[in-house]
């Protein structure tokens, strides 16, 4: 009996030691994981993609009812302001019809001029429509998860657009899922043009809803209300996708409000431009396609 008691005492002591040691061990393991993550970014990237692929079906299952509920709430809200909304839309419709006429005329004119000048257009863009299945928003990150991946042709660096304008770019791609990094993320740097002055700049995010226009040659030329569009420099984005408009110009900083409403994104389009530029991992920029035979390019 006494031996047994002694044994139990020793066993419980050992257990305590192991438990105490377990905490230290766990802490060491977490530090190890962090160090490995810092040293071997490719491995972490693979792990991320794997995790994304695993959870994206679950998330999709969650996302559908959530989207349905959100839509129901939005519908209810809209019922309340149906009349005003209708009036506003009618007015907007009239204005847009006028624009459509202008656009048609310009398109025809453009086509004529292009054929005169033998202008060669950039590669044709194709679109992949995707559903947002997950938010990737935290204090340190602005992004989302999409339910499309490598299988349908999504690649890192491709532009993600909505009806309003640019939302972000593809950062990680899994087999059936991908992560988009919004333009508002602190890691987002986007070559852009000020539409009115054609001046180049870099649009940088800082996790806040407003973007910062950086590396401008002259801030004086930028006015509140100027539209900012992608410049296509770097090769991965089409030219002229609207990004946002300047809302504030004060001592050295230009603030831009993105057109995309990130709080109610549900569907987006991934623009496959046929070129994965500098940000891509697809072995650099492929050579531009040769002009069709028989057409001489001057």
């Amino acid at each position: 009996m006494a031996i047994r008691d002694d044994f139990e005492v020793v066993a419980s002591q050992v257990r305590t030691v192991v438990q105490r040691f377990a905490l230290g061990l766990l802490v060491i393991v977490t530090f190890g994981v962090m160090l490995v993550g810092k040293a071997d970014t490719v491995l972490v990237e693979h792990a991320r993609v794997l995790a994304l692929d695993m959870v994206s079906p679950v998330l999709e299952a969650i996302a559908r009812p959530v989207a349905y509920a959100n839509r129901a709430i939005a519908d209810l809200r809209e019922f309340a302001s149906l009349r005003e909304e209708n009036a506003r839309l009618r007015e907007e419709n009239a204005r847009l019809l006028a624009w459509q006429t202008a656009a048609r005329r310009l398109e025809n004119e453009n086509e004529g001029l292009r054929s005169l000048a033998r202008f060669r257009e950039g590669p044709e863009a194709s679109f992949i429509t995707a559903r947002l299945v997950g938010d990737s928003v935290s204090a340190y990150m602005r992004g989302a998860l999409l339910n499309v991946g490598r299988r349908v042709g999504v690649a890192p660096g491709q532009a993600v657009v909505t009806g309003e304008g640019l939302a972000g770019r593809i950062a990680e791609v899994g087999e059936n899922s991908s992560r988009v990094l919004f333009v508002t993320d602190v890691n987002s740097r986007l070559p852009v043009l000020v539409e009115r002055t054609r001046e180049r700049a870099i649009l940088a995010g800082d996790n806040s809803p407003r973007l910062r226009l950086a590396l401008l040659q002259s801030i004086a030329g930028v006015q509140t209300g100027d539209r900012i569009v992608t410049s296509g420099h770097g090769g991965s984005f089409p030219v002229g996708i609207p990004v946002g408009e300047v809302v504030e110009t004060s001592e050295g900083t230009v603030r831009v409000r993105p057109f995309t409403d990130f709080s109610r994104l549900e569907f987006v389009r991934v623009v496959d431009y046929g070129v994965t530029g500098l940000v891509g991992t697809g072995g650099g920029t492929p050579a531009p396609s040769a002009p069709p035979a028989g057409v001489r390019v001057r």
């Binding site: 905490l23 766990l26 977490t30 962090m34 991320r48 959870v55 340190y140 890691n187």
Partner: peptide, 21 residues
């Protein structure tokens, strides 16, 4: 898992695990 799913580029993986523990 949380860090892998949530983390942006460059964020440390395992810091949430450390916090939980």
């Amino acid at each position: 898992l949380l860090d892998l799913l949530l983390g942006g580029p460059g964020a440390p993986v395992g810091v949430s695990a450390l916090g939980f523990v």
